[in-house]
Design a protein around this nucleic acid. Structure first.
Lengths: 308, 308
DNA sequence: CCTGATTTGTAATTTAAGTACATTATTTTT
DNA sequence: AAAAATAATGTACTTAAATTACAAATCAGG
């Protein structure tokens, strides 16, 4: 078996689109690499910001391996070669260098510091998200929501249930009949009553929550359109009709809040905004009514966002 | 005069540290380049995102100049050569100048476009927020939450009530007795039962919601510490003991979702993260328990964030 | 319309990336 | 426990890209 055969067969979907975020790819393969490749990985992680300017020979020398090993390492990470690896690393670092270093380094001494960690994570995560998203799926989601008779939004567990709530909140304002659910039994029942012109929107960071996957299956079986905002290659992603999926770098540190929420929220906002523009005539009327009802209620005016 | 002499004398401060931002360097030299170099500049500006993957020969061919001309162009921009030029360009672009330059223009034609609007707003808003925040108030909030016997979190209306929910969610994980409220009557009652060692955390984008302001007053009267995440110069900001306030630019366009939510969420995350670090011993135990209960429930493992 | 400076391209050189294949470890099978 | 198969790794070579030297062409000012 020649070198090129091997990479073709064993890493079929490498290349440009395979991995958008090298840092998380690095985390993912960590520990399951061949011994020498792992050495390269260790060196890269320890000197992450100087890699982009090194030659393959320098890196090989520094990690004390041969140059082909470095190339194999790059391929294991889903890159086409060393050049692509360097380029992608540079792009990733331009955004998240601060974030990575902070993580390796010390814990936040004060709240201001913590805020910088949070912002850096938001920045890095949304950037990665932006690059991974498939525009066609987004358009599909928009269409499925605009056309629907009823939109059911669900998410389980802290983060996702809050997102579901927010989703219902947004679409309701656009005049769409919407409801958020975060009780697994109610979700199951509601999902079973959906019809072909209804849409189910599911949030799940893990993509493996049983209740959510089950709901998607049931709703799909009854012909409803199902959308998920989740992770690729998960049970949920496989079972819905419109998967909006991104593989985001999760900070392994348990104290850090997950930045995935921000990315998902941004996706939701983008879809909602598009839907609003597409249906702007009815929407405007709806928003006007909501605003005037609020004004009547507490007399506030001005360019405030709706609600609080 | 040889080639190397010339670059040495005429462009003395080229190299790594000379130019941080290639895009602006490109603007600066625009128009004062030699004819063929200008052609390269024009091509680069028109195809800026594909340059990083081109070879020097390709770029030379596309701009219809010779390869040395391309190198000279790179040097005119302060780079050491084509390689450095490509690298720096890639880094610059990764930081998505499209967002920084903002002014994303007209209404979004598609969802992808809407997403850019959303991201631009997030970046702009969080940036402004970061600059306005008073670190002392953040520290005050942290202290008030760490020391408290009970934390009551509240917000009214779509956005803020979701934030309150999320707040309760976060702090509960840290072992703090927490509850979120979004019913104005219940809030009023609960606020009235707070004691000096309790803390009330309020979210309000407007800072003028009656129920929230009233709750702050009552809780304060009974000696509880009151924190708000809101807007400066509002009734709410004036009445709480620890005002965390930022005046954020709101997009007047009614279809755009408010980016304030992201800024507030980031503040919440930062405080929660700080609290987590400060109380890390008890917190770790708590998170461990939560994790193992979840694992027992659905058997999932790995570096997943807690909950979903 | 010449002279010196500047710009630009051709061709050669140097450097880096990538490949084929042999060698060495490691596992699996008998 | 030895043999066979498989995987991991390095050496030496090939290919491709970046860079340099130098010569030709162009241009500005007298």
């Amino acid at each position: 078996m020649t070198e090129s055969d091997r990479t073709q067969t064993e890493l079929p979907n490498r290349g440009q689109a395979a991995v958008a975020d090298l840092i998380s790819a690095l985390e993912r393969v960590d520990g399951q690499l061949a011994a020498r490749e792992q050495r390269v990985a260790d060196y890269v992680k320890a000197n992450i910001d100087s890699i982009s300017t090194m030659t393959i020979a320098e890196l090989a020398g520094a990690a004390d391996v041969s140059t082909p090993t470095v190339i194999r390492f790059c391929r294991s990470l889903g890159c086409d070669g060393f050049k692509e690896f360097k380029l992608r690393l540079a792009q990733n670092l331009a955004v998240s260098l601060q974030y990575i270093q902070a993580d390796v380094g010390e814990e936040p001494a004060n709240v201001e510091n913590a805020l910088d960690h949070v912002l850096a994570a938001i920045y890095a995560t949304t950037n990665v998200m932006r690059k991974q998203l498939d525009p066609r799926q987004l358009e599909g989601a928009k269409a499925a929501i605009i056309g629907c008779k009823q939109l059911l939004v669900a998410g389980m567990g802290g983060g996702s249930s809050v997102l579901a709530q927010e989703g219902a909140n947004r679409f309701f304002r656009l005049g769409i009949t919407t409801m958020a659910v975060n009780d697994s039994y109610i979700l199951q029942m509601r999902a079973a009553t959906l019809r072909p012109d209804d849409t189910l929107l599911l949030f799940s960071a893990s993509g493996e929550t049983d209740a959510i996957v089950a709901a998607a299956k049931v709703a799909g079986a009854y012909g409803a359109r199902t959308i998920c905002i989740s992770k690729p290659g998960t049970r949920l992603a496989d079972v819905v009709s419109i998967p909006i999926v991104v593989d985001l770098p999760e900070d392994p540190h348990i104290f850090k809040p997950t930045a995935t929420r921000y990315a998902f929220l941004a996706i939701l906002d983008a879809i909602a905004m598009s839907v609003a523009y597409e249906t702007r005539d009815e929407t405007t009327e709806n928003l006007r009514r909501i605003r005037s009802s609020l004004t009547a209620y507490h007399g506030r005016t001005g360019p405030q966002p709706l609600g609080d």
